[in-house]
Design a binder for these strands. Structure first.
Lengths: 240, 240
DNA sequence: GCTGTTATAATTGTCAGTCCATTTGACCTT
DNA sequence: AAGGTCAAATGGACTGACAATTATAACAGC
């Protein structure tokens, strides 16, 4: 019924005002905010409070800061990573199991592959191919290819042209990859993964959405099956 | 090739360390962190830097602070609201459209319904039924039922037994529902929604996953079709 | 014995001021 | 020209002090 009269910290009030100014376009992407001392003066507050506000905005991804004479606080170009980061924190803190992630991936990634087949730009295709080849050479050199494996899946999600799918992929893969890389898969397994990536890529390139969907599905189930023995209770559902 | 030797702010280093400690469970939800002066001492840094770190963690939703003698920084029980908020920020900045949300819903909600049919507990079923009836009476009384509509979809996601789906539903639906409620749907439309919810519920209760999937799919497409005319540029892809 | 009031201590919140570090561009020297 | 030096602007860090808030303990009055 009644609102708290005034309880906010000074730094919160400042944060709010700057955030609003940025969100309503009073500052454009890349614009530099007034320097800390000026802001403190304008808000009739101490530099300390201004700085605390700026740290908060930085964490929100709204601004970034640079040092030096040309430095200052600049308006950042917000993208889906903003959501990704908070979602990741949530996943980590809530200790979501690897099985839950696998299940969610199995829902999203095949659809992402299907959409990618319909929407991928030439540049998307180039990047996909490039990352597959990189993974291949790293694998053949006997090194762990986690990063490129990850990147492939992220690129597919990006090619799907829906930032929500992209942010989902980013969040879940980031969390899952830590677990997966701990398994130290064999050379044979890794070669198979590369092969699968190539197949998915070909399906996307030839705009065969259904095929891309199916292949991605199989790929994820494959990898998941390999993880399976390590943690028992997967796929007990679906059997119906 | 070479990494930057050391560039981080003191406050960032502190933020990182505390965040890690919380994420790895060294501090449990509700635990109180040492007070600012102690932290400053432990990190061999000033209180200012510690405070900047705390402001950052607060924005991440990892901690919250209270004043007074029993006050301090406490590990927060992170929930979806943070993700929702960043979602809404992106929506405001038009980095995400309502169509993207619709597309994502169409991917995961039917699957959630299928899983719910297989996994829903008796209590889930009770709650689902209850919320449908509530929505029905609100609709018949001529009031807007946004909250109960929302709740139904969230409950389905929860009944699916995968916290990731639940978090997603919580974050995305919040945003979607605002847009939908702005359309002030007619009594007729609302009655139809209630009917559809009942059908989905029946499918879940009778453990018919495929039926639940199909019905939920249709339901979302239905609602989406009604939104369609209001904002032109949906489905412009796919046509190729 | 209960109730309301008053100290008191712990803690965050805020401030002003100082100095340091980094970065860039202007100026100067060779 | 090339390279070095210096000055200025800016964020980064620290210090010490005080204010505001909150729970608890002690106390006074009835």
């Amino acid at each position: 019924m009644f609102e708290p009269v005034k309880n906010q910290r000074v730094s919160d009030e400042i944060l709010q005002q700057i955030r609003e100014a940025v969100l309503t376009g009073k500052f454009q992407i890349g614009d530099r905010l007034p320097n800390e001392r000026t802001l403190a003066e304008q808000f009739a507050a101490s530099r300390t409070s201004v700085r605390e506000a700026l740290r908060g905005l930085e964490q929100q991804g709204v601004i970034y800061t640079k040092k030096g004479v040309t430095g200052g606080a600049f308006v950042a170009d917000l993208d889906h990573r903003l959501v990704s980061r908070s979602f990741q924190t949530l996943l980590k803190l809530r200790k979501v199991s690897i099985n839950h992630i696998a299940e969610a991936r199995l829902i999203f990634e095949p659809e992402a592959a299907r959409l990618a087949a319909l929407r991928a730009s030439p540049q998307d295709l180039n990047e996909l191919e490039e990352v597959i080849e990189k993974m291949n050479s790293v694998v053949e050199a006997g090194n762990p290819p986690n990063l490129f494996d990850l990147k492939f899946h992220k690129l597919v999600a990006r090619a799907a042209g829906n930032p929500i799918l992209e942010m989902l992929a980013d969040s879940m893969l980031e969390v899952a990859s830590q677990v997966i890389s701990d398994l130290h898969p064999s050379l044979e397994v890794l070669r198979h993964v590369v092969k699968r990536h190539r197949q998915v890529f070909e399906a996307i390139r030839s705009k065969d959405g259904d095929l891309a969907f199916t292949l991605m599905s199989q790929h994820i189930v494959d990898v998941q099956r390999r993880l399976g023995p390590a943690n028992g209770n997967r796929r007990k559902v679906r059997s119906k």
